[in-house]
Amino acid sequence: MFGGLSFDICPGQLVQIEGANGAGKTSLLRILAGLSRYGFEGRVERHAPLLYLGHQPAVKAMLTPRENLAWHVAGEADFGAAAIDAALARVGLYGYEDVPSHALSAGQHRRVSLARLYLSNSPLWLLDEPFTAIDVDGVAALEERKAAHVAAGGAVVFTSHQPMRGNYNVRRLCLRRGLL
């Protein structure tokens, strides 16, 4: 799909991967995350824990947003109920903590998984189409959160078709017919 790629991602960088449908944005992100190991030849060196949010929000319909989020971050640390509720409030799910997730919309499912961005300690974020199904206010909040993370010394790699709305310093990687 693509070849001859070589790049570094350093702390403090906000990287947007662009490209047409089928250009390999998701594949590249999955390779960076370590989910694809075989389909490519090359090397990925990671020096920091990462947080990957894929196409699917990994939200269980039979669990509440609170339970879902608590499980999402369970591998990282035990954050406690207060921190989890606070994170849900940040993504606009205040009042929905105990509603079964099957009663929520696709955008709200996406928000449950995005709430991890307010809890995680991982310096490197890999976000695959994070704006899907998110409304205008949500997109603005998400952009702010990414910028704050980068300002604090983290790094964000995300795929998107739209340019960021706010005025941020974005490094763009454009995949066009396998070239950068």
Partner: peptide
């Protein structure tokens, strides 16, 4: 697998 939990 279907809802992405497995990736996580």
């Amino acid at each position: 697998y279907d809802d992405g939990s497995l990736e996580q």
